[in-house]
Amino acid sequence: NLYFQGLKYMVPGARVTRGLDWKWRDQDGSPQGEGTVTGELHNGWIDVTWDAGGSNSYRMGAEGKFDLKLAP
């Protein structure tokens, strides 16, 4: 699974964008943008601060869902 392989790169400072299971509307800005991981992966959740200004926790394994992917 590509998403599980990418988890080791989901570290503080990593750049991310919305992924396969995104369901959080425009939390990442409008139009959709990139963000920066600000915390360690914990119980399948990870913290992100978006360039647009907001921050929140997103699923990276929790509930079998992956809200994020590494930015290109």
Score class of each variant (00 low, 15 high):
Thr38Ala: 08
Ser55Glu: 09
Asn56Tyr: 15
Arg18Ile: 07
Tyr58Glu: 01
Pro31Ala: 08
Arg59His: 02
Tyr3Met: 14
Gly39Asn: 09
Pro72His: 13
Gly64Asp: 09
Ala52Val: 08
Gly35Met: 03
Asp26Pro: 04
Gly44Lys: 01
Gly6Tyr: 15
Lys69Val: 12
Thr49Pro: 00
Thr38Met: 11
Tyr3Asn: 14
Tyr9Leu: 10
Gly54Ala: 08
Glu63Asp: 11
Gly44Glu: 01
Arg18Lys: 05
Lys23Phe: 06
Lys69Phe: 12
Gly29Tyr: 05
Asn1Asp: 14
Ser55Asn: 11
Ser30Glu: 11
Asp28Gly: 06
Thr17Ile: 15
Tyr9Gly: 09
Gly19Lys: 06
Gly33Trp: 06
Lys69Ser: 12
Lys65Gln: 07
Tyr9Asn: 08
Arg59Gly: 02
Leu68Lys: 00
Val37Lys: 00
Trp45Asn: 00
Asp67Asn: 00
Trp45Leu: 05
Trp22Ile: 04
Gln5Leu: 11
Asn1Trp: 09
Trp22Gln: 03
Glu40Lys: 13
Ile46Phe: 01
Ala52Tyr: 12
Asp47Val: 14
Leu70Asp: 03
Gly61Ala: 00
Glu34Met: 14
Ala62Ile: 05
Ala52Leu: 08
Leu41Ser: 07
Gly19Gln: 05
Leu70Met: 10
Trp45Gln: 01
Thr38Phe: 07
Glu40Met: 12
Pro31Asn: 09
Leu2Ile: 15
Asp26Asn: 11
Ser55Pro: 02
Tyr58Arg: 00
Gln32Leu: 10
Asp28Glu: 06
Thr38Ile: 12
Met60Gly: 01
Arg18Asn: 01
Gly64Ser: 08
Gln32Ser: 14
Phe4Glu: 15
Leu70Pro: 09
Gly6Ile: 15
Gly61Lys: 02
Gly44Thr: 00
Asp26Arg: 06
Pro12Asp: 08
Gly53Ala: 04
Lys23Cys: 15
Val11Cys: 15
Met60Pro: 00
Val16Thr: 00
Asp47Gln: 15
Arg25Ala: 15
Gly61Asp: 01
Glu63Phe: 11
Ala14Asp: 07
Leu20Glu: 11
Arg15Gly: 01
Val11Trp: 08
Tyr9Ala: 09
Gly6Leu: 15
Tyr58Thr: 01
Asp21Cys: 07
Trp22His: 04
Val11Asp: 03
Leu70Lys: 05
Ser57Lys: 14
Tyr3Ala: 14
Val16Trp: 03
Lys23Asp: 10
Leu68Phe: 02
Gly29Pro: 05
Asp21Val: 05
Lys69Trp: 12
Gln5Val: 12
Asp51Ile: 03
Ser57Glu: 07
Gly6Thr: 15
Gly35Ala: 01
Gly53Trp: 01
Gly61Cys: 05
Glu63Ser: 09
Gln32His: 13
Gln27Phe: 06
Ala52Ile: 07
Pro12Ile: 14
Gly64Asn: 11
